[in-house]
Amino acid sequence: MSWNTLLFMIFPYVATVVAVVVTVYRSIYRPFTVSSLSSQLLERKKLYWGSVSFHYGVVIILLMHLLALLFPKGLQLWNAVPIRLYLLEFSGLALGIWSLVGLVVLVWRRISDARVRTVTTSMDVIVLLLLLVSMISGVLTATTYRFGSTWFTAVFSPYLWSLIVLQPQPELVAPLPWIIQLHALNYFILLFVFPFSRLVHIITLPLGYLIRPWQVVIWVREARARAD
């Protein structure tokens, strides 16, 4: 078995299964452990500059990745006019650098602030390192292999779709430059780490808040009625 098969065929499936199974287990049987583990109480200023730029940058970039995967035709139509291509590429790169800077601030905060250091677990360090690799390799890809939004759909989407439809073709990744392979592999490692780390807070995004009533009242007698 080649490295290519191991890392880009077997590992993605292992990571996905682990991510789903452990996340479901943790959400149901260990809900106390699921938390965004905010440390804003302990340190405020650096968190503001780091967290806001990192989170908003990374959320938009991930959404763009997803859109490119789901709507390749729409992306190609958008890029048909050069000015729109430049606009997309430029804003993508800007967002990448913005969130990378945010991440660096967050890493610096973890290292420099004594209070934040005391609440830092080894898993936090692993997550931060993986995110650093992910963002640096992403920004380098965007700068060294220009116009990713044009070649992504042709070069990378087929591989991802082959995974999604359960007919994996890892050989599609083999000819790609190492930095792009690293970027992809790092994503699967993050996926693998996801359920064991604070990253699980991503799926707890509380969108229900937009529609729920303001007040929440819980009755024991209702539970009793259900038991009867």
């Binding site: 707890t204 509380p206 229900g208 808040y209 729920r212 303001w214 007040q215 929440v216 009242v217 819980i218 009755w219 024991v220 007698r221 209702e222």
Partner: peptide, 15 residues
């Protein structure tokens, strides 16, 4: 506090 919680984690006991 109940109204502000996005996760619906805070509640008032009815009884």
């Amino acid at each position: 506090c109940v109204a502000a919680c996005p996760s619906e984690a805070i509640y008032k006991r009815g009884e």
